[in-house]
Each structure stands twice: as C-alpha cells, then as structure tokens.
C-alpha cells in the first residue's frame, strides 16, 4: 500500500512515466489505483518524432504493469516520512 498511498499524494503534480517499451510520457498525475495504473493529463511524449501516433494524445491511462520508472518532482519526496512508511511496511509484510 506504500506506493499507492504515496502516488495519491502526488496527484496534481507533473511526473514523467517511462514505460518498459522505452516510451516516456510527461504529464500531470490525474489518478492512480491499487494496481498502480496511472492516468496522466496534459501529456506530451518526450521523444515525439519517434512516436508520431502519440501526437494527438492529451490524456492517457497507463497500465501499472508496463511502467519502468516514474520520475518524481523534486518537492514530492519527504525522506523521513518515506523511511517511516517503509519500516512500517517491512514489519507488516
């Protein structure tokens, strides 16, 4: 639940999602669910020339299972809270 809760806190912020097929998309995090599926708004593809079919996509749903990385906003990380949450999660699991 740690990452689900964490991403819920990031809603409204700008992130870059890099997929396992190397496609990287920047956009505003609109919502996230328990599977870490992600919905982005106001999206733009980082390497647009390589992905012409994405030209008119402005909003998208990304399946959680295909995400490699999410680049986070610098102010989206409170390190102490993350440490505590991780230790709590480690005890629970």
């Amino acid at each position: 639940m740690l990452f689900f809760s964490y991403f819920k806190e990031l809603v409204g912020k700008e992130v870059t999602v890099e997929l396992k097929n190397d496609l990287a998309i920047r956009g505003i995090l609109h919502s996230v669910d328990q599977y870490l599926n992600i919905k982005l708004e106001n999206t733009r593809v980082v390497d647009q020339d390589k992905y012409p079919h994405m030209l008119s996509v402005r909003n998208c749903f990304i399946r959680g299972s295909v995400v490699r990385y999410v680049q986070l906003p610098p102010d989206g990380v409170d390190i102490d809270i993350l440490h505590d949450a991780t230790r709590r999660e480690a005890r629970g699991g």
């Binding site: 740690l2 990452f3 964490y6 986070l72 990380v77 993350l82 440490h83 949450a85 991780t86």
Partner: peptide
C-alpha cells in the same frame, strides 16, 4: 534508497 516495498518497487534519490 528512500523507500521500497515487498515487490521491490523503490524510490531512489
């Protein structure tokens, strides 16, 4: 390493 879970999702700085 700032955070991780049982799936080895991680937050790295």
């Amino acid at each position: 390493l700032h955070a991780y879970d049982q799936h080895l999702n991680m937050i790295l700085g």
